[in-house]
Amino acid sequence: MLKWDELQKANFTDSNARARAYGLVDKGTFTEFVSPKDKLSSPHLPVLGEAIEFDDGIVTGVGLIGKRPIFVVSQEGKFIGGAVGEVGGAKMVKTIKLALRAYEDVKKEHPDSYEDRLPAVVISFETGGVRLHEANAGLLAHAEVMDQIQDARGKIPVITIIGSKVGCFGGMGFVAAATDVVIMSENGRLGLTGPEVIEQEIGKDEFDAGDKALVFRTTGGKHKYIMQDCNFLVADKIGAFKTQLDEVMKIPFNEIEGYRRIGSLKLVEEQLELVKKAVEIAPKDSKDMWKYFGNENPESLTNMSYDEFMKSVKRRERICK
């Protein structure tokens, strides 16, 4: 693997899950939980004659940002499309559980200054959701992760990172939406039903999955940023995500709740307002929404470099803050 300094400059998209996990926390602080050496691979795949991986496609561990312990989950899209099965799912759940235990410990040991040391959970998603080869276990894992995120709410921040080739779809799309803060790059995609599935179910006229430009302007980072489905948009570098995480760690914890997009009556009402607006605008394409939210020339946004885009983009105004 590259050295930490080199990792910061590496494209997030081109890096593997382990490199991302190492690079998202401070230099030299990452310790992996259940590493490849523990050889905890899927018990189900060999029966089906499918290749296995020692980490079951999910890298977990803990590192630091400043004094704060950061519990990292990093999914690997190259292994079975990042689909979550029994072992990988259990690793995700256990990592959040450990973060919550660390929260209790820190609070006990530093009752007066525990905010400086408040743990956080960072999940780098690269997945289409449930691994169909072990669907029951995979579904259960989704439910358990949701459960843990609910337990963490109001105690420690849970942060989503999406900047990979596969994106974040299926059940894990729900999971990502349920976290406190979402950070994406323009290469990241977030959605529920994957583009190919929509095309297969409703037809090419409804959604042409081969039209990548359409796929990205419907599910990609830039669109999610304009629509406020993601809080921060960063460049496609591990270091850019790391810098944004550093910034998020500076946000006082009592303000984190304000970054959520769902999870309260008010937020539901805000989402319903948006639905109403969508009916009113009757958009044929996401570009119609971009225009509605103040982007005079929505066509030009797609090809803009990151810096240009950040300078010129207009976003939907949040009602709740």
């Binding site: 323009e186 990205f216 090809n303």
Partner: peptide
Amino acid sequence: NRSMLAAKNIKELVEWSGGLYNPPAKFVNW
């Protein structure tokens, strides 16, 4: 390895071209 390549993806080709290259929709992954 891939780090030797002058451009590693379509977007970087667009950048090399100074924005003159307009890749077809099926290659636009951003």
